[in-house]
Write a protein that binds this DNA or RNA. Structure first.
Lengths: 200, 200
DNA sequence: CCTACCGATCGGTAGG
DNA sequence: CCTACCGATCGGTAGG
């Protein structure tokens, strides 16, 4: 390894750091993610890791971004091409449950863990987490409204209430999987969603 | 202050430490709760704090116990004397929502935060958290089954499914309150619960 | 319950 | 991207 890498090599190294950081943070939290441990696991020096982000907060923000990209790849992208309305909403929810069921990240849903960790603080990391969560809720709301317009859901459906309840079902799924290793949880999540999306 | 306190004084000091520790941990997590900070806030030395628990893990276990006692005082105890069946279940759920709505702990639901923090680890602290959660779910299940037996809920109700969905509603409540300061969340939680407990 | 320590690790910097 | 540091703080101990 040459001490001075090309721009391409540097960006690949950065990607490696962020990917590993995301996995570590999903288990130990964004604060439990330490530069020293990350460096050791990657066979790098601490300064080498930190150089890509400036500060630990910079690293945390990069990990939040990576988590958002992973989620976008795993959930909304799976519904690409599916016609709007209830079918689209259903595809979205199934991809969401499947994403947690397959335990793509070792610590489960990154944003659930990060929200619990940072909701009592202030600053850019907390804001980034809250912003991503708000974006996803907005997305869900849009698809719910389309399903209402299409006549797939009752006209008196409260979109924000439905978003709230769907989020609850998935939070319970993540909780049951991570804390109790309850293998029945995905089936329970699907059953609860079916009831919400079918006959209200 | 005499350097050697009586047994009573020592137990009162211990209570002060645990109470403050619970408040700090609800915001910063059980790992973010440091002995040094706790000592400073209480005007004590680190050794004085640690002496009551031996290790940090001992302190964490004491805080988990205190959280369970607080929850028991705030939720199940509020339903004491209420006849079994749907009325009891309803009282329990209302006390549960109210507990979070009033923000009794500054960081919201201690067990939600602690579960998210420790679910990826192993050891006595994780086990204590999971055990308390399992106890509360079992309690809920018992009251649901009583309501079914009393004919207050449909005979084909799946008790564990209902527990799952109630837990989800409360997890969503805690999430909305702590991350988004959404003041409509308690109303949404009550609406979702009403629908689950009334006409299924 | 205190003072006075201990080694380990934290985030971060200087300089190359 | 490295080595070699820095001060601060961590959990914990010795001894009173």
């Amino acid at each position: 390894m040459s001490p001075r890498n090309s721009v391409l090599e540097a960006s690949l190294t950065r990607q490696r750091i962020v990917d590993r950081g995301l996995m570590l943070a999903s288990v130990d939290g964004l604060e439990g993610l330490t530069i020293g441990r990350l460096a050791t696991e990657l066979g790098m020096s601490k300064a080498g890791v930190l150089g890509h982000f400036g500060t630990k907060e910079g690293l945390q923000l990069a990990v939040v971004d990576a988590a958002a990209e992973l989620f976008a790849r795993e959930v909304p992208q799976h519904a690409r091409g599916v016609p709007p309305g209830l079918t689209h909403l259903h595809t979205l929810c199934e991809a969401w449950v499947s994403y947690l069921e397959r335990e793509v990240l070792p610590g489960g849903c990154f944003f659930t863990a990060a929200a619990a960790e940072f909701d009592g603080r202030s600053g850019p990391v907390r804001d980034a987490i809250a912003g991503m969560d708000a974006l996803w809720r907005r997305d869900l709301g849009i698809h719910i409204r389309r399903a209402i317009t299409a006549g797939d859901l009752p006209a008196d459906t409260d979109p924000d209430q439905l978003v709230y309840e769907l989020v609850g079902i998935v939070l319970a799924l993540n909780h049951s999987l991570q804390l109790h290793h309850d293998k029945q949880a995905p089936a329970r999540a699907r059953r609860a969603m079916q009831r919400l999306l079918r006959n209200r």
